[in-house]
Every structure is written in C-alpha cells, then in structure tokens.
C-alpha cells in the first residue's frame, strides 16, 4: 500500500495530521513562477514546520524549488540519504552561522508575517483533526475543565476531543479557540488541557467518532493555523511547527485544480 495513495489510505481513527503533498506541490510551483531573477529558497527548518522534512523536501525538489534552508547538519544528511537532489543550506554549520532572514512559510500555505498575506492560490497544506471521544449532556451552570472558568449558559452537550497542548493546541487560546465538526463551528469550553479540549456543541447532533477539525485550509468552517496564532499571540509557523509527537503525520496527494 502506498502511503501516497488516498484510496488505499485507511480512514484515521485517532489524532491525525493529514499533509497534502498535492497542495504543497502547487504552492511551490506558484512560488517558483514568481521567483524570477533569483533562486527559490524554501525554509524547511523545524522539521519543515512540523510537516516532516523528507517527504516535503522531495516534493519541493520536484516542483521548482532551488534551495532548501535547514538548521542542522543532520537535516542535510537526511535529505541526501533519501536520494533527493537539491541544494540544502545549513546555516548552523556554515562559515558565518547566521540564520537567513525569514523567507516566510508561503509554501506551507501562509503569508509573510509583516505583509498582507500569501500570494494568490496558496493553500494551507496540513489539516489537524481528532475524533470526538464522548458527548455528554450537562445542565445549565455545569463547569468545564480546570478552574471551572467556563460554565454552560444553558443545558448543553459537551464533546471531548483528544487534542491538548501536548499535541500543539496552544493553551493561550483558552477562551477564544474553536474547532469544526461536520462543517459547523463550536467553541472550546474551558481551559485547554495537556491531552484534551472540550467543545460546547449545544443541541447539535454530534456523535462519538465524528471528526473534530482543529485547523485546515479553512474551506469547510474549520479554523486555520493563522486563526490559532491570532488566539495565542503567535504565528501560523509556530502553530504548525509545534504539533506534538503523539500526532501521526499522514501523507495524502490529492489532485489540485485551481
């Protein structure tokens, strides 16, 4: 079974970071078309911002990138060992050991921090989701999570989702974060914990096993990594780079037409 064949890919049942190599390929191609008069450098630090260095390096090399930028010598070796042929710049062991100025993370779907966003056609590559583990009916006034800072405004249903700050959901987004289930948005109720969050789903027909989407391209009601960054005084790059080790990365390759 090919890891890149979506038809052969089992439906995930647990935490899941789906990384769409087709989207990444298109993003790099768009950047390559714009990089007239200079090499296209893709910032692949932080394990390609949490996407996984080698699979992304292979697609970048095939899609018009000229240079990949990494920190560690071991990253250079990983790319070479995988048989990927592309220039890799490693600032940490270079003569001057100065990291390059931020080249942005447009290849992963997000704009430059201090400009007005990503070039047209750029789409986020990663979708983070997890199953609803339980749905529980509680009365008005029921508290939720540490400190009981959240109280149900009326009788409601609480959906438990196994994504917490150990998995990369920033605790600082407590009070403003939300996720999507079945194309609808639900607020996080109470403090974001290490392993889990609770969504207040009201009277919606949410069932255990339904997928809660923490972020994605933002096309089906789900937030984007940039939304989480706004909730937690951070950047989309950090949200992506800090997805934890308990979340398996799953590579898909959908046809992209734009």
């Amino acid at each position: 079974m090919s890891a890149l064949d979506p038809a052969a890919d089992p439906t995930p049942t647990g935490r899941d970071a789906a990384i769409d190599l087709g989207v990444f390929r298109t993003n790099v191609s768009i950047l390559a078309a714009r990089a007239v008069g200079g090499p296209l450098v893709i910032d692949m630090t932080a394990d390609a911002y949490g996407h996984g260095l080698v699979p992304l390096a292979r697609v970048a090399a095939e899609s018009g990138a000229d240079i990949l930028s990494v920190r560690d010598r071991s990253d250079v070796e990983s790319i070479a060992d995988a048989g990927i042929s592309i220039d890799v710049h490693c600032w940490h062991t270079s003569r001057f050991a100065i990291p390059p100025a931020g080249s942005g993370i447009a290849a992963f779907g997000f704009g430059w921090e201090l400009t007005d966003g990503a070039p047209a056609g750029i789409v986020p590559v990663m979708t983070l989701s997890a199953p609803v583990l339980s749905v529980k009916r509680v009365p008005e006034g029921h508290g939720v999570s540490y400190g009981l800072v959240y109280r149900a405004a009326r009788e409601t249903s609480l959906a438990l989702v196994p994504l917490g700050y150990a998995d990369g959901i920033p605790r600082g987004a407590t009070g403003s974060g939300w996720m999507a289930i079945n194309g609808r948005q639900y607020p996080i109720a109470g403090r974001i914990a290490m392993d889990q969050v609770v969504l207040d789903v009201g009277d919606a027909a949410v069932e255990p096993g339904d997928r809660a989407v923490a972020f994605g391209p933002g096309v089906e009601a789900e937030p984007t990594a940039a939304d989480w960054a706004a909730h937690s005084a951070s950047t989309a790059g950090e949200i992506l780079a800090r997805i934890g080790r308990r979340v398996p990365r799953r590579y898909i390759d959908r046809e992209v037409s734009r």
Partner: peptide, 27 residues
C-alpha cells in the same frame, strides 16, 4: 554573534540554535 541592536552597549547579540520549532514559546 551578530552586531547588537542596542547602540548603548557595544555588545553583541548571540544566536542560540533553539527556536519555537523546538518548543520555546515565542510569546
């Protein structure tokens, strides 16, 4: 090391290879 952004001390700034990708909170 790189030139400091602070002109008051003729000190230098140092580059440390740990970032938010390693879990250091940028906030």
């Amino acid at each position: 090391v790189a030139p400091s952004s602070d002109a008051d001390f003729s000190a230098r700034s140092g580059i440390v290879p740990l970032g938010y990708g390693d879990g250091v909170p940028p906030q």
